[in-house]
Amino acid sequence: MSDHHDPHTGLHSEQGALAGEHPGRVSDPIVKVHDLAWLEFEKPDLTKAELFAHAFGFTTSVRTVDELHLRGTDLGAPCVLIRRGRRSAFVGPAFRAADSTDVVKLADATGRKAAKLPESLGGLAVDLVDPSGLRVRVVSDTHELAAQPAQEPLTFNFGHAAVRANAAQRPVREPARVQRLGHVVWQTTKYRETLDWYLRHLGLIVSDFLYYPGQRERGPVMSFIRCDRGATPTDHHTLALALGPANRYVHSAYQVADLDSLAAGGEYLREHGYHHSWGIGRHIQGSQIFDYWRDPDGFMVEHFSDGDLFDNALDPGWAPMKASGLAQWGPPATKDFLGIKPGPQALRELRTVVNALRQDNEFDFERLRGLLKVATS
C-alpha cells in the first residue's frame, strides 16, 4: 500500500452544511432568472479586441465605430458586448429573465424603471446595482441570433468500446468555436451581503460553498451559484462570488465542444502570441475541463467543456478552499491565475490589500491570513 497523501482528500464538496450554516437559497425570491444573457465591457481599442475575440472563437454579430457584439454558435443573444471607452473596464453582467413580467416585477420591487434596449438588441431591461457596486442588468424578449454551424465533437474509442474504425483523429489547429457564455466570476469585499442580494433578487441558488481552512465557523468565502429552473438542470454555476480585497471582475467562461477543440484552440492562441494563464485541467467544483487565457487588455477568459448540470433538488456542498483544490488533474495553478505573479500586478495587489484592511468590510486580517494560506497551499 502506498502512503502517498492525496492533496484532494476532503476537497470534494459532496459534504453538506452543518447546523446553522447558510442554506444557499431563499424561500421567496423576487424573480428567478433563467440564465446569463451577456457580459458588457468598455475598451479603447475595438480592433485589437476583435482580433483576439476571433482567435478565441467568437464571431462578430455587430461592429460599428463605437460598439462590438461577439457571439457564439448557439441560438440566442451575443455573449459579449464591448463599447469604446477611455479605459478597459468590466461594466457588468446581463441576466435573462423568464419574460417581461419578471423584468417589470423586479423594477417595481427595487424602485427602478424598466426601459427598452437599443434596437440592435431588442427587448426590455432593468438596471440594478448589487451591494458591491456592480451594475446588474436583467433583460427579456431580446432578439435571437440564428444558430451557426458548431464544431462537431470527435468520435472516441473509450477503452474496449470501439466505435471508430478505419478513421484517424486529426483535429484541425484552429480557433475553438465558442458555443455560448457559461459563467462569470466576481470578487467583492462584501461577500455575504452580495451573495444574499443575488439569492433574494434573482432567485439564484448555491451549488457549492468554499471556506478558508480553519475558518469554517466564520462562514464561506466563495460560492458557486446556479439558476433555479426547477427540474430543468442548469450549469453548476452561472455566477461565482468570492471574498477579496477589491470589487472586481475575475474571469468569464465560454463553452466549446470538447477537449480536442479546447486544446487545438489553445495551440492556435499560443501560436498567435496570446498570453496563457493556466490549464489544461479539470476543476473539482463544476467538473469542467478548463483552459485560461488573458486578452490583450488583461481580462481573464476561459474555454470550458463537460461541466456539471444540476436541477434545484441538490443542496450546497461545502469544502475548504485550497490552491491544490482548484483542479482534479492538470498543472498546478499558476501565479498569474492566482494573482500573485511578481511584478507590477503584485504591487498593485499589495496596495489593494492595504486599502481594504483600512476600510469597514468583510476582508479583515483573519481573512487575509486565510487567503495567504490558500495561495501557498
Rank of each mutant, 00 (worst) to 15 (best):
V301N: 09
P131D: 05
L145K: 01
T188K: 03
L134N: 08
R87H: 10
D258W: 08
M300I: 11
H237M: 09
K190F: 04
Q255D: 11
A53H: 10
P331R: 09
K43C: 03
R358K: 13
L314G: 03
L51M: 12
S61K: 12
L154S: 05
D311L: 08
D258I: 05
G230D: 07
Q215Y: 11
D141S: 12
L210P: 00
L128V: 12
G325L: 06
N312G: 08
H4R: 11
W186G: 08
P344I: 13
R358E: 11
F209P: 02
E362I: 01
V103D: 04
Q148T: 13
M1I: 03
G307Y: 04
Y191N: 06
D102F: 03
Q359L: 11
F224K: 02
N361E: 00
L75Q: 11
V256C: 12
G325P: 06
S88M: 07
K113W: 04
V221R: 07
T238F: 01
V33M: 09
R367N: 00
T188G: 04
A77K: 06
G122D: 02
F363N: 05
Y198D: 00
H237T: 03
D260W: 13
D3F: 10
E174H: 13
A97N: 04
V129Q: 12
H143M: 02
P171C: 10
V185K: 03
Y212T: 03
T59E: 07
F224L: 12
W293Q: 06
A109T: 06
P149W: 00
T47A: 07
R25M: 09
P296L: 08
R200P: 00
W329T: 04
P44D: 04
G298T: 06
I205M: 12
F304W: 08
F304A: 04
V65Y: 10
K113Q: 14
A167R: 15
K190H: 12
T376A: 11
D315N: 05
G286H: 06
A323S: 15
Q151M: 01
T142L: 03
S2N: 14
D99I: 01
N361D: 03
K190R: 15
I289S: 13
L134I: 05
Q151W: 01
W186E: 08
D295P: 05
R173N: 04
